[in-house]
Design a protein around this nucleic acid. Sequence first.
DNA 1: GAAGGCATGTAAATCGTTACATGATTTA
DNA 2: TAAATCATGTAACGATTTACATGCCTTC
Lengths: 181, 181
Amino acid sequence: MTELTNTSRLLLGMLHLMGEKTGYEIKAMVDDSTEFFWPASYGRIYPELRRLEEEGLVRGRDEPQGGRPRKLYALTDAGREAFERWLASSSELSFELRDEGLLKFFFADALPLNKAIETLESMRLRHERMAARLRELEPFVRETELRFPLLTLESGIAMHAFYAERCAQLARELGESPERP
Amino acid sequence: MTELTNTSRLLLGMLHLMGEKTGYEIKAMVDDSTEFFWPASYGRIYPELRRLEEEGLVRGRDEPQGGRPRKLYALTDAGREAFERWLASSSELSFELRDEGLLKFFFADALPLNKAIETLESMRLRHERMAARLRELEPFVRETELRFPLLTLESGIAMHAFYAERCAQLARELGESPERP
DNA sequence: GAAGGCATGTAAATCGTTACATGATTTA
DNA sequence: TAAATCATGTAACGATTTACATGCCTTC
């Protein structure tokens, strides 16, 4: 019983949530929901679906639409079981952050103060933009009447809003006390 | 003039900040400062230092200590320039998050409510632990008398504390209103 | 003399993005 | 008929972790 990989947990979850889907449809769902904390590219999705099929966790079914080839994937019983086992398990939850803004800010002693404040301003804008994008998604998620995707989205909005506000506050403080303590 | 890679920005920055260092020392510094928003492993640091030397951005100098081989690296003028150019540039700031806790939470409609609350509790603990670890670092960063590393650290603490509090609040709300709206 | 820290590095495996290629269908 | 969208996929490249291997020095 091998561990589920990064992308496979997402794929199984999406199929669990939405039933039979193509790789293309899964990608669209991801881009409108988990992308901000769990992205996935076509270059991972298609190979991973095949691999999952080989492992017997999903089953693919050709269903061309007109002359256009399509392959619908669905969970197998084993796939459903593996997903639910992961979901209910209490193993360590991985958490990875890579934030170029913070990296620049970390090194900003090497920068004139106004440049450091500019970096904060870019960071603030970035998070404002992310929060705004998530807010746009909200009505659509609300329509699905799923409780947890909505709560997740709201957490994302809150997180980015918090981050943006923190950048604004730091910029103010730096602007007011330009002297080194 | 090729773009600096992910790890190279970190390495150049550390050498800029601290002067001549070995790969080993850089790794230790990273683990005590940028790790929570910009990690790096030995498996990246050593090859990357070599590559940077080939590119002329750092210069390595063998300085064995006793019979133990050591290689101290320092910025070259070109390296300093490349680093400062990146630092002052206003290109898009990359931001990547991968949060397994949020992924589980997103799918938690498939889970009994108490299990969903357990997931939140693991997430809360995780962030409490991260905040606690960063708080331990604070006195040491304070000693360096560098302004921005300290502000960065405090941002990290604030972020994880916020995240933890959010998890606690969600858990309370879910516990109080177990019915679907 | 053993354990732990200092120090360097490689190999294998994974992971992931990006860019490219292809072609059908739908809509303006 | 052109553009957008649906749909699948591969190739190349780069990033990254993990595990392994080696050996010295210091401290208990």
